[in-house]
Simulated assay, not measured.
Amino acid sequence: MNLILTGFMGSGKTTIGKKLAKKINYKFIDTDAVIERKMKMPIKKIFLLYGEFFFRRLERRILLNINLKESFILSTGGGMPCFKNNINIMKNKGIVVYLKTPKNRLFKVDKSNRPLFKKAKILLNKRKYCYQKADFTIENEKIDKTLKKLIKLVR
């Protein structure tokens, strides 16, 4: 049973995904980290040099090439489910969980590595529709509670 974590930037996908994978002994994949390794540069620079469309294509390629033979937790970029038909591909690869985080926490995150943060409130409103297509929505207020809810989904 694979879990795919989606949600807005700063919603805790990577932090929660790593902890969850460790607890249940799953492989953890962070699409941003994979892209940074392959491109040998930070996301912010990729956006600056090549633009968002290029970045979204890289995300999509990772999604399409995920090996389904071993169980995994996937942390996606905040815009991944809204690009082309990625949400459908995500659902074919595992259970998609939207980590819904209170706005007051979302907008307190470190903005330096997030190229789209200047448009954050507008983006969140646009992406809500995509996030609502997830198989499950989990209110992400406290990490421990969120982890317990996610473990129940997997087991």
Rank of each mutant, 00 (worst) to 15 (best):
M9N: 02
L48Q: 14
K121M: 13
L74C: 09
M80P: 02
K119L: 10
R155T: 11
K149S: 01
F8R: 08
L58P: 01
K45W: 02
F117H: 01
I151Q: 01
F47K: 02
E52M: 02
D30C: 00
D144T: 13
I16S: 05
I143R: 07
K152I: 06
M39S: 03
K152W: 05
K13E: 04
V34L: 15
T146V: 07
N85C: 09
I4F: 06
I151F: 03
K111L: 09
F47P: 04
T146S: 06
N113S: 11
R57Y: 11
L106N: 02
F47S: 04
L147H: 00
E36L: 08
T14I: 07
E141H: 12
R155D: 15
T6W: 01
K44T: 06
L106K: 07
L153C: 02
K121E: 14
K149D: 06
L58E: 13
V154R: 11
Y50P: 03
M39A: 10
K22W: 11
K69D: 03
K27M: 14
L58H: 06
K13P: 05
E70C: 09
R60W: 05
I4T: 06
K118G: 15
E139L: 10
D32A: 09
I4L: 11
I138H: 00
I95Q: 09
D32Q: 04
I87G: 00
L74K: 03
M80T: 14
R56W: 05
K121W: 10
K22H: 15
F107A: 10
I43L: 10
K149M: 01
T101Y: 07
I73W: 01
C82E: 12
R37Y: 07
F117N: 04
F55M: 06
I95R: 13
S75Y: 07
R114K: 09
K13A: 08
K44C: 06
E141P: 03
K100S: 13
E59L: 00
F107M: 11
K103Q: 11
K108T: 13
V109G: 03
E139N: 12
F55Q: 03
Y26A: 04
D110P: 10
M41P: 00
I89V: 15
K148I: 08
T15Q: 05
N85T: 11
T101M: 10
I87Y: 12
G77I: 01
K13W: 05
L49C: 00
L123G: 01
N125M: 14
I46E: 00
I73H: 01
T14V: 10
K27N: 14
N25A: 08
V97Q: 02
K133E: 14
E139Q: 10
M90W: 02
R114D: 07
D135A: 12
Y98I: 02
G7L: 07
